[in-house]
């Protein structure tokens, strides 16, 4: 393997860097900048990090690291704490990756339930005569129909893998 000629420490650091690359490329943080995704990926691997560790690991300046961490805190994705001696700031994911993955199916169920509710609200609005014939109403109806198809495929697939409670699947089947 590409890292095998290095000494043990360098090998581990190279593997760590590669895991960050994989996490970023797997798209867990789709829609985020490369910089933000990398920093989040390091936080996925390590329980707690400080700014210096992130600067050394990523190569970004301390200023860049600090601003990114501030942004992530404001978004509620990470938490800030202090080391036991209270000297330096440490950062961790607000929800560790292992828990995020374990709660994936619960989160997806809730997500589809909320989508179904929202689509029902849209349908109710479009039912009103006054709105039904307005310009753009057909596009909205088409959008609702597309979303129902998308949700149906995903929910049925998840149900077969026993990810989804039957109530959500019934809700989808009723449409």
């Amino acid at each position: 393997m590409w890292y095998e000629h290095l000494n043990a420490e360098a090998e581990l650091r190279a593997i760590e860097k590669r895991l960050v690359e994989i996490i970023v490329n797997l798209g867990y943080f789709k829609g985020r900048s490369r910089r933000t995704s990398e920093i989040l990926a390091y936080l996925c691997i390590h329980k707690r990090v400080n700014q210096k560790m992130l600067r050394k690991a990523t190569g970004y300046s301390l200023g860049t690291v600090s601003n990114t961490l501030k942004e992530l805190r404001q978004l509620g994705l990470i938490r800030e704490g202090r080391d036991p001696e209270g000297r330096e700031r440490l950062y961790e994911l607000a929800v560790p990756l292992s828990q995020q993955l374990a709660h994936y199916s619960t989160a997806l169920n809730r997500y589809f339930h909320e989508w179904n509710d929202f689509l029902k609200q849209l349908e109710n609005q479009l039912c009103r005569d006054r709105i039904a014939r307005k310009k753009g109403a057909e596009e909205i109806r088409h959008f609702i129909s597309k979303m129902r198809a998308v949700i149906s495929v995903t929910v049925n697939a998840m149900h077969r893998l026993q990810f989804t409670p039957s109530e959500i699947q019934q809700e989808v089947a009723d449409k």
Binding site: L122, Q125, L126, I131, K134, K135, G136, A137, E139, I140, F143
Partner: peptide, 12 residues
């Protein structure tokens, strides 16, 4: 889009 439909689109 009609302004009312635009509002629905904004909700989406």
């Amino acid at each position: 889009f009609d302004p009312e439909i635009r509002l629905i689109e904004k909700d989406i």
